[in-house]
Simulated scan of single mutants.
Amino acid sequence: MEPLRADMFEEICPSSLLPFRVGPDKWAALVIRCLEAGPRRYSELRVPLARVSPKALTHSLRALERDGFIRRTEQPRRVTYELTPLGQGLFEQLQLLCDWASDNWDNLLDAREA
């Protein structure tokens, strides 16, 4: 599996302009996007989510696990997070929202500036 890119979520990107939240907090959608390709360790998630504080990322992961969207797996000296079937279904809907944000990028930016 390829490593996550550090620039996966730039400061201004369609996912940051969504006028609604997906999941328990504002970072949940980004975490779900990071887990799209398969299980990831916490340190891997920190790369594209560097602007998220460790405390906020931990809170988001716990909330997503509590709500059944992700699964936390512990092995000796290794913890991974992955999407559950429920989380995969949410990812598909999230992709539709991201496509909508991309299609309406200019309108969203205009509205934010107004």
Rank of each mutant, 00 (worst) to 15 (best):
G87D: 13
G89H: 11
Y81I: 14
A63Q: 04
Q75E: 02
R66D: 12
E82W: 02
L86M: 12
R51F: 09
I70K: 00
P54I: 14
Y81T: 15
E65S: 09
R72I: 07
A56I: 11
A50H: 03
Q88S: 06
V52H: 07
F69C: 05
R71N: 00
Q88I: 06
P54N: 14
L90E: 12
E74T: 05
P54L: 11
R78M: 05
L86K: 15
Q75T: 02
E65A: 13
R77S: 06
A56P: 09
L83Y: 06
T58F: 08
E74L: 04
R77K: 12
A50F: 08
L90W: 09
V79K: 14
E65I: 10
V79N: 12
G87V: 15
Q88V: 03
T84D: 12
L61P: 01
V52P: 03
L57F: 13
I70H: 00
G68F: 06
G87E: 15
T80V: 15
L57N: 10
R78V: 06
T73I: 06
E65L: 07
F69M: 03
T84M: 05
R72K: 10
T80Y: 12
E74K: 05
Q75H: 02
G68S: 13
T80W: 10
L86I: 09
P76L: 00
R71Q: 09
L57S: 08
S60Q: 01
I70S: 00
P85A: 09
L61M: 09
V52R: 08
K55M: 04
G68Q: 06
H59R: 05
V79P: 09
R66T: 15
V52Q: 10
A56G: 09
L86C: 12
Q88E: 10
E74D: 03
L64F: 04
T80G: 13
L49W: 11
L83S: 06
H59L: 02
L61F: 04
R51M: 07
L86P: 05
R51E: 09
R66A: 08
S60A: 04
F91Q: 13
Y81C: 11
G87C: 14
D67C: 04
A56K: 10
L61D: 00
L86T: 12
R77T: 06
T73D: 07
L83C: 11
L64W: 01
Y81L: 15
L49M: 14
D67M: 05
Y81H: 15
G68P: 02
R51C: 09
E65N: 09
L83H: 07
R66Q: 12
G87I: 15
A56V: 13
A63G: 07
R78T: 07
E65W: 06
L90A: 13
P85D: 02
Q75V: 02
L61W: 03
R66E: 07
G87H: 13
R71S: 01
R66Y: 12
Q75G: 03
R78K: 09
V79L: 14
R66K: 14
A63C: 05
L49I: 15
D67L: 08
P76R: 01
A63S: 05
D67E: 08
S60C: 09
A56M: 15
Q88C: 06
F69L: 05
A63R: 04
R71C: 02
E74Y: 01
T84Q: 09
A50I: 01
R72N: 06
K55S: 03
Y81G: 03
V52T: 10
L90F: 11
V79T: 14
G68L: 08
E74C: 01
F91D: 11
E82C: 02
P76C: 00
E65T: 11
L64I: 13
D67R: 04
L64Q: 00
D67T: 11
